[in-house]
């Protein structure tokens, strides 16, 4: 109950500040660009055809695959203020002296940010509608794709909330969040090259993208579900512990 109260306030705070709108604009621009124009960065040798073109497979899969990387930046920007703002303005003092537990506070923050993410993700349903109007997308594949986006997003949000609990500076929280997510997505590819070959496969199992690409393909892999849920729980647990430890300083 208290988690919901906290989540509601969190969500309201997003919409009172320009934050939610700026990030939503960023997100929508990103999705629209990928969907209608594709991404072409000749200098990085990135060339991605638009998702919405004649002759293409009617699926949102390429969109989800790019979003998985795009959200590495977007979600930490979204979550960077959740706890650090409370530290900066001192409202943490009124919050933590109310009869709520640390876990409820983190739960509320997570849920608030998660709801906003779901709202953002829901806007992509418009594009799914377009695809459905001009083609015959497989509903099962799409559903699993969206499930993957939810699980991946949840993990990203948990990492972002964690980054926000460790500092009172929003920007620092944002950067730490991006760094952690960058490690679990692109960074693993580099790490795989550095470790001895016999450990490489174990290390590559830490890659969020590996699990996510199963979902975007339309394959429901229980290992992926467990991986994302565990990682989300782990970062939320860390956040609660960091918040608790704040009291001792």
């Amino acid at each position: 109950m208290k988690v919901l109260t906290l989540a509601k306030r969190e969500l309201a705070a997003y919409f009172y500040s320009p934050m939610a709108y700026v990030i939503a604009a960023l997100f929508l621009a990103m999705v629209g660009l990928i969907f209608l124009l594709g991404v072409h960065v000749p200098f990085l040798k990135i060339s991605l055809e638009p998702v919405f073109r004649s002759g293409a497979e009617s699926t949102l899969r390429p969109l989800f695959d790019v979003l998985a990387y795009g959200l590495v930046v977007v979600i930490p920007l979204l979550t960077m203020r959740v706890v650090s703002e409370e530290f900066r303005t001192g409202t943490i003092e009124t919050l933590m002296t109310a009869p709520v537990t640390d876990a409820q506070v983190i739960g509320g923050k997570f849920l608030g940010a998660m709801i906003l993410y779901v709202i953002l993700l829901a806007t992509t349903l418009v594009y799914f509608g377009l695809i459905a109007a001009f083609g015959q997308p497989d509903l099962g594949v799409a559903a699993i794709g969206y499930l993957g986006m939810l699980l991946l997003g949840g993990t990203y949000v948990a990492v972002g909330v964690f980054a926000s609990t460790i500092t009172r500076h929003q920007l620092v929280a944002g950067i730490i969040g991006i760094a952690i997510l960058a490690f679990f997505t692109g960074g693993i590819y580099l790490l795989v090259l550095l470790v001895p070959p016999e450990q490489a496969s174990a290390v590559s199992r830490l890659n969020m993208i590996t699990y996510f690409s199963d979902f975007s393909k339309g394959v429901l892999d229980v290992r992926g579900v467990i991986f994302f849920v565990t990682l989300t729980a782990f970062f939320l647990f860390l956040s609660v512990k960091v918040l608790e430890s704040r009291r001792w300083r």
Binding site: M1, K2, T5, L6, K8, R9, A12, A13, Y16, S17, T89, G90, T91, I92, E93, T94, L95, A98, P99, V100
Partner: peptide
Amino acid sequence: PLYPEMRVREYLRFRAALRG
């Protein structure tokens, strides 16, 4: 310390809920 973006009654409603 108060949440700057909230309104007085809204804030008190939030706090009342938080206090159970």
